[in-house]
């Protein structure tokens, strides 16, 4: 009988081959970003640049306002996350711990809204944003995304599971319900809050369709939209394109490596809660 890890050799081989396929596009992106335009177009291609051209990265910053784009994205991501957490915690608290007529119906309405695909509300939302004078401002990318219904759903599930005694004790100690939310409920809800944060950050960092439509000027564009336009304008300048793309994905990749366990667990957990 061979050693069990030896028997697993074919499995490893398969997983490694597939793994190479997963990583290869990233490798190709970085390697192209470090080539000269001439070398990038060589065929058959070279796997590694003959001399790494770090100037490409300097040149990208000269051609497009990447810092500006990134700053915009950070601002939008952060502001909408704050909104999502605030509206989410309050709404979930009402759904989970208050009794009032219309509660269940309102909750069902929220869930139903989650089913509606974006095209249905995109055009009128655009008109409303236009009437408000918000088109081509940060507000247009932040305010409509300060509610995350799935987040409310997750928080409500969690709040409902908290033991009743906790709230009774708080009441006896003269703690108001509002204070109880911040002193008792939230400290016990960290994992759920992290899950929502993870989803929201990845979601807003990578969002494309909405900002594409509500922005017109370059200075307001988030990273993804700026990058997409750059790819249309410089569609054959592969070295610069790959350099820009590399820069654009580094922040999330770093975040992923730092918070990997949280991210993967969160996504898996959310999947199961459905």
């Amino acid at each position: 009988m061979p050693h069990p890890q030896f028997r697993k050799f074919p499995i490893h081989l398969l997983l490694i081959v597939c793994g190479i396929g997963m990583v290869l596009p990233f490798f190709w992106m970085v390697t192209t970003s470090l080539k000269t335009p001439l070398e990038a177009l060589r065929f058959p291609p070279t796997w590694l640049p003959s001399a790494a051209q770090f100037e490409n990265f300097v040149e990208v910053f000269r051609q497009i306002p990447l810092w500006r784009y990134m700053g915009n994205t950070v601002l939008i991501t952060f502001a909408s996350l704050m909104g999502v957490l605030l509206t989410g915690v309050l709404a979930a608290y009402a759904f989970a711990r208050f009794k009032f007529p219309g509660r269940e119906i309102t909750f069902m309405l929220f869930l139903a809204l989650m089913m509606i695909p974006m095209p249905v509300y995109l055009v009128p939302s655009y008109m409303i944003l236009f009437k408000l004078g918000w088109i081509d401002t940060y507000l247009a990318m932040i305010v409509p995304w300060t509610v995350n219904i799935f987040g409310i759903f997750l928080l409500r599930q969690h709040f409902r599971q908290l033991p009743e005694d906790l709230f009774e004790a708080a009441k006896l100690d003269g703690c108001s319900r509002f204070a109880a939310l911040f002193r008792i409920v939230l400290p016990l809800s960290k994992p759920t809050l992290v899950t929502i944060t993870v989803f929201n950050v990845i979601g807003s960092w990578n969002s494309f369709f909405w900002p594409l439509i509500v922005t017109h000027s370059d200075r307001i564009r988030p990273l993804q939209v700026g990058l997409a336009y750059f790819s249309r304008e410089q569609s054959t300048n592969y070295t610069l394109l790959m350099a820009a793309t590399t820069i654009a994905i580094i922040p999330l990749i770093v975040l992923f490596f730092v918070a990997q366990k949280h991210i993967i667990q969160s996504q898996a957990r959310a999947g199961l809660k459905e």
Partner: peptide
């Protein structure tokens, strides 16, 4: 490794794949 493409934006991967799928290069 398998999860990396999931956290990467669709815009970024589209740009990279367009280059990978280049007909001549």
């Amino acid at each position: 490794i398998y999860y990396l493409p999931v956290v990467t934006s669709i815009v970024a991967v589209s740009i990279v794949w367009k280059w990978i799928l280049h007909p001549d290069r």
